[in-house]
Amino acid sequence: MSSPKRIRVLVAKPGLDGHDRGAKVVARALRDAGMEVVYTGLRQTPEMIVEAAIQESVHVIGLSILSGAHNALLPRVTELLHKEGADDILVIAGGIIPEDDVPGLKKHGIAEVFGPGTRLSEIVDYIKAHVKL
């Protein structure tokens, strides 16, 4: 009688940007897709994000950022995860991230970047297809 494994996701807002509409909408969509979603609120440093991801033992980290600080903050998250030996966590990002920056972020271990206009189901499907449980 084992209960099914649940996908656990940390949705985080790195940096100082306070626009959390997207983060919250995605969090609710993931919840409605049967996932357990930990939301930590605004103004998260990469260190805080990684620590929360570890304590909560999540399978996925979703980072939402609209301030333009993505190139400085997102690679730092994956770098810290690597240091903790937690590379198995799937890291995805969303927000206002210019197309030109996406290849660089992917090289740093951000698995996918979802821009404005993304359907919620696209994100759900992506996670289900790529998560390592």
Binding site: G15, L16, D17, T45, S67, G68, A69
Partner: peptide, 22 residues
């Protein structure tokens, strides 16, 4: 920019990557 909006100078640790951005 965001550091100014939340009362941090450009050299504050939380300002990293945000200076002059928005």
């Amino acid at each position: 920019d965001l550091p100014t909006q939340v009362g941090y100078d450009s050299d504050h640790p939380m300002a990293q990557g945000e200076v002059g951005k928005v």
